[in-house]
Design a protein around this nucleic acid. Structure first.
Lengths: 151, 151
DNA sequence: CAATAATATATGTTACAACATATAATGTTT
DNA sequence: AAACATTATATGTTGTAACATATATTATTG
């Protein structure tokens, strides 16, 4: 099934098709990944925040701004994502005494064990592109870097 | 600037990097496109609906379901996107007498002239990938098709 | 040090995807 | 034709990006 059939559309040129193809393919992959997360009752951005909290849990204070910088989406609404994780008991949040504007966020043991239970989600992420050979995936990364002007 | 710097993260392998790279690059391109739309006071999905309405305006009835099938996102909330366009006077909506469950949606002249004024947005879409050569864009499309299992 | 600027976070709004449920109309089965 | 199934759309909810604005705290500057 080609993207032309998928979308029942026509493209002006290969560049136009490329943009739609990127959007469509990424959406589809994101959806598959989201499905694997959903079984654990957690949304994608909440998962991303938890992973950051685990990855950097030795480096205190883990502030909202620090998390935000590490999200794929620079305009991520980390304040409220942290709210939701807090309500679920997956993190703690306290004022940072060094700079009282900041919050110091820490993943709880409940949060850590949730991530442990979600290990197959990480493995899932690594299999979503296995239709491509090693050489092809490197070429894809090169092309994507070039699109973003990483010469 | 490499994606490693962009994201301050480390990747498990090239497949993992590929997934993040796809997400990140597509997000960035989508943002650039969104900026070009915003000057016309219209959101991305509203623009997409208007383009479908113009593209198929000879084929009546243009129902909510017909539009939905042609959206990149199959779970698109077309009912309410159409609501918003209706409020702006960019389309009309009436019961389809052939099947009274359906709505027959039609772009107005106001809608058409808005699209005319937005022509540079279409051109913008074609330039977002011009960092790639003709050969590279075809290779990108091939890889994306292969990811989605289009052998 | 007081005034002002910058920063960190919170909160409010709109648009939307994803999902669940509701309602009306049409189609099918008995 | 009545009962039931299917379809088209609408509506309600949650999570979140994008944006604007607010507030508290810290940093800077006169």
């Amino acid at each position: 099934m080609s993207i032309e059939d998928d979308l029942k559309g026509r493209f002006r040129n290969d560049y136009h098709k490329g943009l739609i193809n990127l959007t469509y393919t990424t959406k589809q992959l994101g959806y598959e990944f989201f499905q694997s997360l959903k079984q654990h009752g957690i949304a994608e951005q909440q998962y991303n925040v938890l992973r950051i909290l685990r990855g950097f849990r030795s480096q205190v204070p883990l502030t909202i701004g620090f998390i935000k910088e590490r999200m794929l989406d620079k305009d991520s609404d980390v304040s409220r994502i942290v709210d939701r994780l807090f309500e679920k008991g997956l993190l703690t949040r306290k004022e940072n005494s060094g700079d009282r504007r900041q919050k110091s966020v820490e993943i709880t043991s409940k949060g850590l064990s949730l991530l442990d239970k979600m290990f197959e989600c990480e493995k899932k992420a690594d299999t979503l592109l296995t239709n491509l050979t090693e050489e092809e995936i490197r070429e894809l990364n090169r092309l994507l870097d070039k699109i973003r002007n990483n010469t």
